[in-house]
Simulated scan of single mutants.
Amino acid sequence: MTKPYTGIWPVAPTPFNPDGTLDLEGMKRVLDCMIDQGVDGICILANFSEQFLISDAERETLTRLCLEHVAGRVPVIVTISHYATPIVVERAQFAKDLGASIVMMMPPYHGALLKGTAEQTFEQFRAVGEVGIPIMLQDAPLSGVDLPVPLLVQMAQEIEMLKLFKIECPQAAMKLRALIEQGGDAIEGPFDGEEAITLLADLDAGCTGTMTSAMIPDLIGPIVRDFLAGNRQAAIDGYARVLPAVNHENRQCGFRSAKAAMMEGGVIKSDFCRHPIAPLHPATRAMLMELLTPLDPLVLKWGK
Rank of each mutant, 00 (worst) to 15 (best):
V88M: 15
V299G: 07
D97R: 12
D139K: 10
A205G: 08
D139P: 13
V299S: 00
G111E: 13
V39N: 03
I277T: 10
Q182W: 12
P13V: 01
K166P: 11
M289R: 01
E90N: 07
K301G: 03
A112G: 15
T6C: 13
C207F: 03
D226P: 03
N247V: 06
G20S: 09
M1Q: 03
A57Q: 06
D271I: 07
V30H: 06
C43I: 12
I167P: 13
T85A: 10
P134T: 03
D32W: 05
I135Q: 14
D40L: 01
E90A: 12
I223M: 03
D271Q: 01
G7E: 06
A178C: 15
C169N: 15
C169W: 08
A235Q: 00
E194S: 09
F191T: 10
A283E: 15
M211H: 05
D192L: 11
L98G: 09
P75S: 05
T85Y: 08
T210Y: 13
P217V: 00
T6V: 10
D36Q: 12
C33H: 02
A172M: 05
I277Y: 14
Q252G: 03
N17C: 15
E60A: 01
G38H: 11
D32C: 08
R91G: 09
N47T: 11
D97T: 14
P4Y: 02
G303K: 00
M263F: 04
A118T: 15
H69R: 00
C169T: 11
A234C: 06
P18G: 06
